[in-house]
Design a protein around this nucleic acid. Structure first.
Length: 940
RNA sequence: GCCGAUGUGGCGGAACUGGCAGACGCACCAGACUCAAAAUCUGGCGGGAAACCGUGUGGGUUCGAGUCCCACCAUCGGUACCA
């Protein structure tokens, strides 16, 4: 028999509605508060999908448990109702988006109610409701007055397919997030939010919140803080100068050229006549590239010399100035100093254009010892292109495989030294020099001389021209100690010496050295490590008034206007004398006018331009035109969590006393895809409101958790075209809301992506059936004790409580299953345990829990019953089983009294026949006892 | 490329600070009930005949490693020349 979930769920949903069970008295400050929030949905025409109930059930479980634990719980729901899809639907069908949206909201609400979620529906809000967006506009007004919302001419992401400007987080790989249309850079006058002003606050605030570390990291990367210095470079033979930004001022002595972005204002002024034409051509080419092309062009570096030289302020050296589009006009100062030895991009550019490379930071290998002797050395790698092999010297057990090494004599160059050593040790003489490494500092101990060395080593690569050999110059002893061998590149792995393998890798794959090291060729920085040198150089720059410490952020202004109809109107007018004015508070809300034709225009004009009666207005007696772009979708969602606290207030965004009591949100649950959009914008607005004294906390969301995506049963993302979509309505009809909730929580960890198993929900339903039979039909629930269930009951209360607390819903449910399995085997289920179990079950499966509670003889809702407790002492067994291992392998399981003395355990363990069998003929070396866990015998 | 996460039976997943890998569920197999099926109940279920082998791969630390360290591979997410 299975229970009639249709009837029961309907009965209790009506009960909750009628009794306003979940209505929150926000003015009741007598209990601790708990604010559990879901990211409110965009009410699409599709209706709810199975991903929605996942997050919503999680917050619902927490809310329901907290109510039983004596908290005053705020658990609201609303609608993120402005946005593109409704508008596009309207364009297609000719229906007004507001009607369409209202219909969708009704559907969503019905579906959510069907799931038995304990929302306080009296607080329902919708971002497209004038009573709500009045306050969105009101906040915009404050932001405008404080200079954070501003109108600027800037290059924007223009999407022709949507006829609209997009913000950076709405552009994915050069295409629009919605629709996948191409996006290009275009200069336009735009409303923006100066979110970079809040970069530091938004960065440091992350340390104060309990969020998934990965999400914090995404925000940190998006904000992109880098600390460095600005340095002024004079242009030789002019009175002009430019400033560069660098995070590595310590490498200034290695700056061998400068690069300006093609758009840099100084370019035209300092380009010499000889180079004018090339520079013009390059600039034209760079500006014609869209962002998409720039990223798709595989990043082969391009650029041209402009004829002028800059003066390196630390050494007065004249270095060439180039322009290249690898330097971005929009970041830092749009100009860089290039240090090819220590920056990958500069290295690539310098290699391609044969520019000078000066190392100023030396790599260090080996281990530093006391009393080191110093010498200059080389490591020579000889390559034979005909056989594709490398020359090595095999020292056998006296040092393994090495390349040719040697010590430089006075006045000998690296190359001369290498040639001499190769000849002396191997006889090859007809060789061609290819390239060398930067000098490496290497520390080692020479055991034959019993002496520690610190050497300055340069690696050199040669190619063998022919096999001609002359006599080697070795003594007998040396000759017997090593073999000269040609080996292929995979055998090079046998070269384990740190210096030799480093040299080989550098020679084979020349690259910039970007790690920490010791400064060389750097005057007053010589000998310092990276960070010390950075500090010292910044000091020096500031003293000499050449530069300053400087912090830059990658985060860009948030583009805050869309050339769309279905959004909040921006409360701004332009009077005929070209002044910009913001509407008075009394004139808010500025209502969105009705419109016949919503179609976007290809020119970037907003659909609202067509509402002539609305656009043409007066302001303080002057003729005026209204702003016709609207706010982006993320405007209303940036503060809605405040409004739930006091949703009907028509005097202010919310009563400050209520805000103070209820903020911050204690638990916020939603998808990880909002990491840099909504979750950053909300923090920005909330921080701003906090500064204004309008919000009580800096951070709006104290704890954030994500729900993972539910995939189709084939492991792929659900989509209509793949035919793997599961509809929650069907699931509720077939198995009931409780079964759906149980299954979604049981699938796996809340934040993991999980495939839908069509049989899984059937299993969850069977579990509820089993509970029903046990409670209602078996007659086993009696007001009598049953000591057999004592331990499992107390453990279940403990585990389920802890697991809910940590949002480990899958293991909580599995523990409830274990309890039911145990209870079903018994003849008596004590009423006390039955009641406790129903309470544990009620947050996940509230309908059946209410019904069972009712049938256990209570006539009120279970919602505000007290959460069950457990007795720790009932969890301890008198006798436990532990494993006995011999040499780490389990050979027996023995029963011992809990907390048994080691001597006793030893006796029991050794008495076991299988243990004896495995010890036979062996001597016991050691025995390890981990109390109440394991006994391990080590024997030989 | 860089940053982050993940990798355990046929499948979803358990495993506390290193201590009997595979809890719980799905699927499957066998049995009971039934004329039969469904439902339900009982039992089994990583591989191997066994010794043993098994947590992405290869090393290491340890009496003992899914868990810690090193190197690598694969998948997913973020990012795209940010100086």
């Amino acid at each position: 028999m299975s229970y009639n979930f249709n009837e029961i769920e309907k009965k209790w949903q009506e009960y909750w509605d009628k009794n306003e069970t979940f209505k929150t008295d926000v003015w009741d400050f007598s209990k601790p508060k708990y604010y559990a929030l879901d990211m409110f949905p965009y009410p699409s025409g599709q209706g709810l999908h199975v991903g929605h109930p996942e997050g919503y059930t999680a917050t619902d479980i927490m809310s329901r448990m907290r109510r039983m634990q004596g908290y005053n719980v705020l658990h609201p729901m609303g609608w993120d109702a402005f946005g593109l899809p409704a508008e596009q639907y309207a364009i297609k069908t000719g229906n007004h988006p507001s009607g369409f949206t209202a219909k969708n909201i009704a559907t969503f609400k019905k579906q959510l109610k069907m799931l038995g979620l304990s929302f306080d529906w009296s607080r329902e809000i919708s971002t497209c409701d004038p009573n709500f967006y009045k306050w969105t506009q009101w906040i915009f007004k404050r932001l405008y007055e404080d200079g954070l919302a501003k109108l600027v001419e800037m290059p924007v992401n223009w999407c022709e397919g949507l006829g609209c400007v997009l913000s950076n987080d709405e552009v994915i790989n050069g295409k629009s997030e919605r629709g996948g249309y191409p996006v290009v850079r275009k200069n336009m006058k735009q409303w923006v939010m100066d979110i970079p002003k809040y970069a530091e606050i938004l960065l440091s605030g992350l340390d104060e919140v309990d969020w998934p570390e990965s999400t914090k990291e995404i925000q940190r990367n998006w904000i992109g803080k880098s600390v460095g210095a600005e340095v002024k470079f004079k242009v030789a033979n002019t009175d002009k100068s430019f400033t560069v930004f660098t995070t590595r001022p310590d490498t200034l002595f290695g700056a061998t050229y400068c690069v300006l972005s093609p758009e840099h204002e100084l370019v035209d002024e300092i380009t010499t006549d000889e180079y004018k034409k090339a520079v013009e051509e390059y600039k034209a080419m760079a500006s014609a590239k869209s962002d998409l092309e720039r990223t798709e062009l595989n990043k082969e570096k391009t650029g041209v010399f402009i004829g002028s030289y800059a003066i390196n302020p630390v050494n007065g050296k004249e270095i060439p100035i180039w322009i290249s589009d690898y330097v971005l006009a929009t970041y830092g100062t749009g100009a860089i100093m290039a240090v090819p030895a220590h920056d990958e991009r500069d290295f690539e550019f310098a290699t391609k254009f044969k520019l000078e490379i000066i190392p100023v930071l030396q790599q260090e290998t080996g281990t530093v010892r006391e009393n080191e002797s110093f010498k200059n050395s080389i490591v020579a790698v000889l390559y034979n292109p005909k056989t594709n092999k490398y020359l090595t010297i095999n020292w056998g057990d006296k040092g393994g495989r090495l390349f040719i090494g040697g010590t430089k004599k006075d006045n000998e160059t690296d190359i001369d030294c290498a040639i001499r050593e190769i000849q002396e040790e191997t006889g090859y003489t007809n060789i061609k020099f290819i390239r060398n490494t930067f000098p490496i500092k290497h520390h080692y101990f020479a055991y034959n001389k019993n002496k520690a060395y610190a050497i300055n080593a340069v690696g050199l690569l040669f190619e063998l021209v022919d096999d001609l050999k002359v006599n080697t110059n070795l003594d007998k002893e040396e000759e017997n100690n090593f073999k000269v061998e040609w080996v292929s590149s995979n055998q090079i792995a046998e070269v384990t010496d740190e210096l030799h393998s480093t040299v080989f890798n550098n020679l084979k794959n020349p690259q910039a050295f970007v790690e920490d090291g010791i400064h060389i060729n750097s005057d007053f920085l010589n000998g310092l490590g990276k960070q010390d040198a950075i500090n010292k150089m910044i000091e020096w720059l500031e003293e000499n008034k050449i530069g300053d410490k400087k912090v830059n952020y990658k985060i860009r202004e948030w583009i805050f206007a869309r050339q769309r109809y279905w959004g909040e109107p921006i409360p701004i007018v332009y009077t005929e004398d070209d002044e910009i004015h913001v509407l008075a508070d009394d004139d808010l809300p500025l209502i969105l006018p009705e419109l016949e034709d919503y179609a976007p225009s290809k020119t970037g004009a907003s659909p609202l331009d067509k509402a002539t009666n609305w656009v043409n207005t007066t302001f303080e007696g002057k003729k005026a035109r209204r702003e016709t772009s609207t706010m982006p979708g993320s405007a209303g969602s940036s503060w809605y969590f405040l409004r739930y606290i006091d949703p009907h207030n028509d005097k202010e965004i919310a009563d400050p006393k209520l805000l103070k009591h209820w903020m911050p949100v204690d638990l916020y649950v939603g998808g990880p895809e909002h990491a840099v959009g909504h979750l950053l914008y909300s923090r920005f607005w909330n921080n701003y409101l906090y500064k204004k004294g309008l919000a009580p906390t800096k951070e709006p969301f104290a704890k954030l958790r994500h729900q993972g995506m539910i995939l189709g049963s084939n492991g792929e993302k659900m989509s209509k075209s793949k035919g793997n979509v599961i509809n929650p309505d069907d699931m509720v009809k077939e198995y009931g809301a409780d079964a759906l909730r149980i299954y979604e929580m049981f699938m796996g960890p809340i934040d993991a992506a999980k495939p839908w198993d069509p049989n899984g929900i059937d299993g969850s339903k069977k579990f509820l059936d089993r509970v029903w039979r046990l409670f209602v039909e078996s007659g086993k629930v009696q007001d009598k004790p049953n000591p057999n269930l004592e331990k499992v009951y107390n453990f279940t209360v403990k585990k389920v409580s802890n697991d809910y607390e940590n949002m480990y819903f899958n293991t909580a449910i599995s523990q409830m299953m274990i309890f039911i399995n145990s209870a079903a085997k018994e003849d008596i289920l004590p009423k006390e345990y039955a009641e406790g179990f129903v309470k544990l079950l009620s947050p996940v499966a509230p309908h059946i829990a209410e019904e069972l509670w009712n049938r256990l003889g209570h006539n009120d809702t279970i919602t505000y019953e007290t959460w069950p407790t457990y007795d720790e002492s009932k969890l301890i067994d008198d006798v436990i089983e532990i494993a006995v291992q011999v040499n780490g392998k389990v050979r027996a399981t023995i029963s011992i009294p809990t907390d048994c003395a080691e001597e006793e355990v030893k006796k029991i363990a050794h008495a076991n026949s299988n243990v004896q069998l495995h010890l036979e003929g062996k001597t016991i070396i050691k025995e390890i006892y981990v109390k109440n866990k394991i006994y391990n015998i080590v024997a030989k």
